[in-house]
C-alpha cells in the first residue's frame, strides 16, 4: 500500500511538474515582483479503475487541454486519503494558486481545509461530494436527487398494476456514507409510491464484489417467502448492479425468484451490454441513470473560467438521462459515450 502511495505521489508530482514545464509562464511580474502567473489546481482522490479512476483520467485530460487553450499553468494532485488532501490544500494556499477544483475524499474531513482555502480568498470549486454546511465559490455535481426521483417514478410506472393491488417489496443497495447516496435515497422517497417498500438496505462502498456477497447472503439466509416477495432492486451504481446480477443468476436455492427489474446509476458500457441478453435469457429488465465520469470535465471547465476572470457561483447540477433497452443504442451514439469510450482518454 505504501509503495502504491509513494508511486501515486510521485506520479502526482511528475504530472504537476510536467504541467509547469509544458506551460512556461509569460515572464510577467508585478511591481513587488510577485509572479503574475495563473495556476489552476485540481485536487482529486486517487484511483486507477472504476468511476473514480475514469473520472481522474478525464479531469487530467480536461485540465491539460484547458491550460493549453488558455495559457495558464496547472497542478494536478491526487491523494489516498483526507489528511493528505488537506496537506495538499495547505501547500496550494501557500503557493497562492488562482483557483482550486476539489473532489473531497470526505466532505466532513475536508471542511477545515476547504475553509482555509476560502479564507485565503482562493476561489474553490467543490466537485461531487458536498461539504455539508459549507459554502464554496461553486459546487458541481451530478443531479443525485433527480436520479432518485426518476428511479421512484420508473418503479411507479413499471409496477402500476401491482401497486394498485398492494405493496411491492424491493431491496436497496446504497453507495457509501457520503452525501451522494443520501441524496439518491431522499429523491427516491420523494416520488416512489407509498406502497413500494424497501425491505432491506445494504451499504456497498460502491463495490461490485461486496454487493454480490450481500445479495448472496440475503438469498441464502432469508425465508423463501421473503425472497419471493422481492420484485425489484434499486441500486446506486452500475457496478453494484453487476454484483447483484451475478448473485441472482447463480442462485440455486429453493425460492422461485420474482425479481423483474434492477436499476443502476452510471450508463457504463459493460452494463448496457447486458441489457438485451439478460432480458432474453433471464427476463430481467434493467435501467440505468446516466452519471458519467466525464462530468468532472465540467468542474475543471468552471475552474478554468474562474482562472480566466469569469465569475462562477452557486450549485451546478448535471442532469441525468434514463437509459433502458429502448434507447441504449441511441445513447451509444451520444457525445458523452464518444468521449468516454471512443476518444482514447
Amino acid at each position: 500500500m505504501k509503495k502504491l502511495l509513494a508511486l501515486v505521489l510521485t506520479l502526482a508530482m511528475v504530472i504537476s511538474l510536467a504541467g509547469c514545464a509544458q506551460n512556461a509562464p509569460a515572464a510577467n511580474t508585478t511591481d513587488n515582483a510577485a509572479p503574475a502567473k495563473k495556476v489552476l489546481a485540481v485536487v482529486m482522490p486517487n484511483a486507477t479503475h472504476g468511476f473514480l479512476g475514469e473520472s481522474i483520467k478525464h479531469a487530467e485530460d480536461a485540465t491539460k487541454k484547458l491550460a493549453e487553450k488558455y495559457g495558464f499553468e496547472y497542478k494536478f494532485l491526487t491523494s489516498a486519503e483526507s489528511s493528505e488532501q488537506n496537506n495538499q490544500l495547505d501547500t496550494l494556499i501557500n503557493e497562492k494558486v488562482s483557483c482550486i477544483v476539489l473532489w473531497p475524499h470526505n466532505g466532513d474531513e475536508l471542511r477545515s481545509g476547504a475553509q482555509k482555502v476560502m479564507d485565503a480568498k482562493i476561489p474553490l470549486i467543490v466537485y461531487d461530494r458536498l461539504i455539508t454546511g459549507f459554502k464554496p465559490t461553486a459546487e458541481v455535481m451530478g443531479d443525485n436527487v433527480t436520479i432518485g426521483q426518476e428511479t421512484g417514478k420508473y418503479f411507479n410506472k413499471y409496477f402500476a398494476e401491482d401497486l394498485a393491488k398492494g405493496e411491492v417489496a424491493i431491496l436497496e443497495f446504497k453507495g457509501d456514507n457520503s452525501t451522494v447516496p443520501q441524496q439518491r435515497s431522499d429523491g427516491f422517497k420523494e416520488t416512489a409510491n407509498k406502497n413500494i417498500k424497501v425491505v432491506q438496505q445494504f451499504s456497498t462502498d460502491w463495490q461490485r464484489a461486496k454487493a454480490q456477497e450481500q445479495m448472496e447472503t440475503f438469498l441464502t439466509t432469508s425465508d423463501v417467502q421473503e425472497i419471493e416477495k422481492i420484485k425489484a432492486v434499486f441500486t446506486h451504481d452500475d457496478e453494484v448492479v453487476l454484483g447483484v446480477l451475478d448473485a441472482i443468476i447463480n442462485y440455486k436455492g429453493p425460492a422461485k425468484l420474482d425479481i423483474r427489474v434492477l436499476t443502476g446509476v452510471g450508463g457504463r458500457r459493460e452494463n448496457l451490454d447486458t441489457f438485451k441478453p439478460y432480458k432474453e435469457k433471464y427476463n430481467l429488465d434493467q435501467v440505468t441513470y446516466l452519471f458519467s465520469p466525464t462530468m468532472v470535465r465540467d468542474a475543471v471547465e468552471y475552474g478554468a473560467k474562474v482562472v480566466n476572470g469569469e465569475t462562477v457561483s452557486g450549485l451546478i447540477l448535471i442532469d441525468t438521462l434514463e437509459i433502458t433497452l429502448d434507447n441504449e443504442k441511441e445513447f451509444r451514439n451520444s457525445d458523452i459515450w464518444k468521449i468516454r469510450y471512443e476518444s482514447g482518454i
Binding site: K135, D143, S292, D298, G314, L315, L317
Partner: peptide
Amino acid sequence: VNKGIILP
C-alpha cells in the same frame, strides 16, 4: 447534458 444551476 443539461445543467441545473442554483445561484446563491
